[in-house]
């Protein structure tokens, strides 16, 4: 078994997902080689062959060009498995490769079970073990699912690639995330509102509990997308990452992108009408209740 790992650069730097790829390959066993569009100043701690394309020539976001470069490496190395992070880079590039290679793609792998890849379904309420029937398989890894306990050490043997083609997409640079009006990372208590609040008129129920606990209120993404709360209140992969002493998730199902932003909280209380909601997996306490009934009573008791 040979695996090709595709590491990711952002804004001129190597992303930490490279370590997850290396750890995944170690768990899987067999040989691994790596591919990166980057530069020699910031390389993964990988003991093995690293195919490196220069980022100033190949472009940081140029999926068509990266695909061509990868196909060259795949031709040479003949891996059975090509692995990318399940990130905005990986889920964009992986299907392009899969089609070109006539390879099955297995998305968002969370576990290797008896040599097979396991992926989530239905907001993590189910897990599916998948088997590819093609000669090559492309897989993407869920962020955080293969984080090593210790960062790997190692020095790659760099093999330089000639810069690729330009592809059919133009990249015009980045736009930074808006400066956070509220810095949730400093709050000791965060009470967050999810779509389960039902309507914007219910947001005060959340704010009041946050006040009673001397904390801030946060929100899940749909609440921000619906403009019921400002963007700087959003917790998750595309919002803020928080680790308060207490996190109270109200009407939040517990999608992986939300959990990524709050799972380091010291104590988590979830209030949800759905006993099976995936938030229960990270919550220390799941109160199965309608937040509209429970929160006002809880707030009143705390205030008295």
């Amino acid at each position: 078994m040979k695996t090709l790992l595709v590491a990711e650069y952002r804004d001129g730097k190597l992303l930490g997902s490279a370590n997850e790829l290396i750890n995944f390959a170690a768990k899987l066993g067999g040989d691994a080689v790596m591919f990166l569009v980057g530069n020699e100043t910031d390389l993964p701690n990988f003991d093995g062959k690293l195919y490196l394309a220069d980022i100033t020539q190949a472009g940081e976001f140029n999926p068509g060009g990266h695909k061509q470069l990868l196909l060259e490496v795949i031709e040479k190395e003949q891996p059975q498995l090509v692995v990318l992070p399940h990130s905005s880079y990986g889920w964009d590039l992986a299907p392009r490769l899969a089609v070109a290679l006539q390879a099955a793609q297995i998305s968002e792998v969370v576990e290797i079970k008896e040599g097979q890849l396991v992926v989530p379904a239905c907001n993590a309420k189910l897990r599916r073990t998948v088997k590819a029937t093609t000669a090559t398989t492309v897989a993407t890894l869920q962020s955080g699912a293969f984080t090593p306990s210790n960062d790997p050490s190692g020095n790659p043997e760099v093999i330089k690639l000639e810069s690729g083609s330009s592809g059919d997409i133009q990249f015009h640079g980045y736009e930074a995330a808006g400066a956070a009006a509220v810095d949730l990372s400093k709050a000791e208590v965060i009470v967050s509102a999810g779509r389960g609040i039902g309507k914007p008129e219910n947001l005060p129920i959340i704010e009041n509990l946050a006040k009673a606990l001397k904390g801030e209120y946060g929100a899940s993404r749909p609440v921000v997308d619906a403009e019921w709360a400002e963007p700087s209140r959003q917790v998750g992969t595309t919002g803020q990452t928080v680790a308060p002493k207490l996190y109270v998730a109200c009407g939040i199902s517990g999608a992986i992108q939300h959990l990524a932003g709050m799972k380091k909280s010291e104590f988590v209380i979830a209030i949800n009408t759905d006993k099976d909601a995936p938030i229960g997996e990270v919550a220390d306490v799941l109160a199965v209740a309608d937040l509209k009934q429970l929160l006002p009573i809880l707030t009143e008791k705390l205030n008295s």
Binding site: K125, L126, T129, G280, V285, V288, A289, Q293
Partner: peptide
């Protein structure tokens, strides 16, 4: 088909969190 589902199941419960049910008060 290029791939098959060989098994599907709810995830094993890892978090032994407390589940509370009952009257709101």
């Amino acid at each position: 088909a290029q791939q098959q589902t060989i098994n599907i199941a709810p995830p094993e419960k890892k978090g032994g969190g407390l589940v509370l049910e009952g009257d709101p008060a």
